[in-house]
Design a protein around this nucleic acid. Sequence first.
DNA 1: CCTCCACAGGAACTGATGGCGT
DNA 2: ACGCCATCAGTTCCTGTGGAGG
Length: 400
Amino acid sequence: MSDPVDRLLDAAESGKSIIKNRDILHFSYIPNIILHRDSEQKQVTQSLLPILKQSRPSNLLVYGKPGTGKTLVVKRVISKIQERVEKSNFPIKLVYSNSKEETTLYGLLVSLGRQLDLDEKELPTTGLSISEVFKRLLNKISEGKINAIFVIDEIDYLAQLIAKTGKDILYQLTRANERLEQGSLTLVGISNDLTFKEKLDPRVISSLGEEEIVFTNYNVEQIKKILEARINEAFVENTVEDSALNLCAALAGGEHGDARRAIDLLRVAGEIAERQQSDKVTTKNVKEAKQKIEENKEELSLEAFPLHEKLIILAMMKANGSSTGEIYSSYKNLCKIVGLDELTNRRITQMLSEIELSGIITGRLIHQGIHGRTKKYKLEISSEMIKKAFKDELTLKDII
DNA sequence: CCTCCACAGGAACTGATGGCGT
DNA sequence: ACGCCATCAGTTCCTGTGGAGG
C-alpha cells in the first residue's frame, strides 16, 4: 500500500516529481473522460433522451466486461442530463447502487432509499419486510414527484439474490411506473455477464431489456491511446518511456481489455518510479507494479478472512498432501491446539470453495477409482505471505 | 461389467441477532 | 409485549459420481 506521507516526502526530497496530477490516474476520473466510447455514449444518451421531454425513457440494459467504462459512461450521461434540466421543475435524481457491494436484497434497497433522502426513521436498516421497503421507496418518489433513474451495477448479482429469496423485486422495479401516480422510475441495469439475461424471468426481460447496449472489449491499440491521453495530462512530459507504456497496454489488454487495470498499473508504476527517485517510468517499474498490485490484493484478502478460514489456510500449509480429507484432519488438529470448536466437514468444504473464489488456492477434482473422489487443493501463494498476513491474529500466534 | 470408495455439493433447516409495527 | 421479518453462520441429511480393483 503506497503511503501518502512517504510519497509526498519522497517527492519533496528529490525536488522533482514526475506525476503532475494523480487524480487522472484513477480509472474513474470523470471530467473529460477519455475513453474512446463515443458511439456508446451516444447510444446511452439516446435511450435516456425521452426524459428531457418529460416522458419516461425505456429501461436500459448495459453489458460489458470489467474496465470497459460502462458505469462511467452511464453516470456521465445522466449527470449531463441533470445539468440540462437543473433549472426546470423536472428534477432528475441519479440513484446508483452496486449489487456486489450490497450483499443483501434488503441492503440494496436501503442504499437506494438513502439516496432518495430517506433517513433512518423513514427507512430503518432492518426489521421491515422487503415489500414494505419497496412501498416506501415508491411513496417517496411519488410524494416528491421525483424522476428517479436507478442505476444498478452488477445486476446479475441482484438477480442471484432474488432467485435465492424468491422475491420478484426486479419485476416490480421494471413495472413500478404502473404503480406511481407522480414521478417516474427508470431502471438502468449494468452487467458483466452477457449471458445473464437468459437466466431472468421472461417478464423481466421484456421490460428491462427494452434497450440494450453492449460495450465491447478494448483492444491493445485502444488501451494504448487511453493511456497516452492520461499520461499527457497526468505526467510531466517525457517521463514515461514508450516501452513502459506498451507493456502496460499489453499486460492489461492481452486478456480482457481492461482499461481499469491498465490505468492502475500505470499509476503504481509511476509511484514506484517516483519513490526510487527515478525520472523515468521504465518497463522494470511496470513489472514491479504488476507484482505489487498482485501481492497487495493477496494480502488484503488474506487478512479479511474469518478465523476459521484462516485456520484452513494454515492447515493447508501444514498438511502434507491436500485432499479435502487431509486438510480437514489437519484443521481439526489446529483447532485442538488453539482451543476452538471445530466445524463440520460440510462447512469446511464450503469454506474451501469460498477461498478458492479469491484465487488464493486452486482446486482440482480428481477421481481415484476405488479410493473415491476428492478435490485436491493447492496454495497459490507463498507461506511467507501467509505468515506475514496472519501475524496480527492473536489466536493463531502459537501455530504459525 | 459391476462395485464401492471418499468425498462433492445441493437443499432444507436451526438458532441467534437485531429491529420493525402495533 | 408480541409476532413478524431478513440475514448469517452453521448443521443435518442427502444424492451423485469416475474409475481402480475385483
